[in-house]
Design a protein around this nucleic acid. Sequence first.
RNA 1: UGCCCGAUGGUGUAAUGGCAGCACAGGUGACUUUGACUCACCUAGUCAUGGUUCGAAUCCAUGUCGGGCAGCCA
Length: 597
Amino acid sequence: MSSDSVPTEPSDFIRDLVARHVTEQRYPKIVTRFPPEPNGYLHIGHAKSICLNFGIARENAGQCNLRMDDTNPAKEEVEYVESITTDVQWLIAGWADHCLGLKPKGATPAAQTVNGQPDFHLAPADQSKFQNPNSKIAVEPFFASDYFDQLHGYALTLIERGLAYVCDLSPKETDEYRGAPDRPGRDSPYRHRPVAENLDLFARMRAGEFPDGARSLRAKIDMASPNVWLRDPLLYRIRHTAHHHTGDVWCTYPLYDYAHCLSDYLEGITHSICTLEFVDHRALYDWILGALDLPRPLPHQYEFAKLNLGYTIVSKRRLLQLVQEKIVTGWDDPRMPTLSGLRRRGVPAAALRRFVTGVGVTKFDSLTDVAVLEHAIREELNAAAQRRLAVLRPLRLVLTNLAPGEKVECAATNDPQSELPTTRQIALTREVWIESEDFAEVPPPKFFRLKPGGEVRLKYACIIKCDEMVKDAAGHLVELRCTADLTTRHGQPNADKKVKGTIHWVSAIEGVEAEVRLYDRLFTVPEPAAEEDFLKVVNPKSLEVVTAKLEPALAAARPGELFQFERLGYFTPDAKESAAGRVVFNRTITLRDTWAK
RNA sequence: UGCCCGAUGGUGUAAUGGCAGCACAGGUGACUUUGACUCACCUAGUCAUGGUUCGAAUCCAUGUCGGGCAGCCA
């Protein structure tokens, strides 16, 4: 299947629901959001969420806002804001760019009146203006921290309505009072403070009069609720910490449950899609929005199962550990399942989208076989990659019937999958490199490649016969001496002569050398996250570096270009460590190999 | 022993009361100047028990198994 014949539009229970809402004309426009916390790099698990949220937007002529869910200044950094923005744009490029919700830099929700009621709204921005390359408008993602003023105002409303109170319990005491899932909690002694006192204390919290953790603002719901998230959850905590986006304006910060539903509302989100662990929070999401009597339609939360991938860790905390303990070279190490790692490794964004579509969206907690990802990558690369010849582990082969300076020009196909394939010239010379694996002195059964006295075709060139092995004093094979039958070249009388095997080769005269990094899976077990210590199952052979022999055209390869080294796999120049005149190649993935099995 | 969510081949999913289908993986063969790609064929499934129904993967009941929830993380 070629990359332009991607299967039909996906369907799943969330898309079905959205389709129903569209039919009912429940909303003027479908607006979703992708809300990462900028405390780490995006990974393949996020790709599922991104493709779902942007997919729904593009299938319904809607919009998907990129929003930094940045309510915890202790963990968040600008570095992550930047990487997240880059990664999202890369993943959706050419597919859902037109649905990407960004906003003019610095924009915050505007006050308005709806049905006679005061309201705030950060209206969907006109994306077409931003997409004009001549646009002078600086844009940025949405930030939950841009709503701190409005969030504070809503908190005052809740206090005034007797629906929130300032609590003086310490974190430890709060825990004790909350009870347990099978045991009801007890009311805080501060639960019935008068409104005026709550207002005063909340103002003083904001003014910085109290140390971290001394007081909190809590919703007044039900300490006996079977849903622990409804047992007077915290809305605000005190943190004397500067924030990456708001600086030192605030020392009180809202918590996720309070900030998220209201951020959705302020942006006019219609469908707030998150993962299963938030199912229990939905009651709180609805309670907060319901308690405020907001004038516009309320967003609703829907949940799906996050991605689990075999032989892979998909957890920001553990990924950070791999980086910090230098098990990998960074967040963008090509072995990492981060979007930046996959990109650097040579995985096209379209392959990730294809993969995610194949996995589907359900509420079942599953473990997807890596083979599904690998298949999606090969499908995409088979259509996109230019073919080249390279030898990873060279063995010298001398064609004894060719003169030392002789060059036999051969036409090699660049793009066999294309309707009008193009070719390039490569020169066959007296000395060439072949893959050492392609010769066996004692061949196993059904071995198609070169063996003593055997024949094999050099791809794009001619059939050769192995006459002699040359070994060193220690008995190691150092060279093969063969005879080339030039009459079996393309266009020659014996071109159609059949041999069982065809192997790749590189001219020892014209070829160039380059570092090639061969990657394997990072973990040795299918479910590293289930391990007591996942660092113990790191694959010690996840990276092998070789000096390969490449056909000369490869010396000019640029980052972003995708190649298939024939019979070996897909490779791409490393964008970070390649320099002019010194290309470093990353192996994205091997070719499927049914012989090795 | 509280609340919530879920269970379809080895894996991931579809079937929305009416023929259990697709993809991946695995196997066999064809093709092949990539042991790739492509093509053909094969293997293999409704958690259990009861009920409703002409008819149940689907609805109901009970059970079993798995996952989530007790951060001033998101």
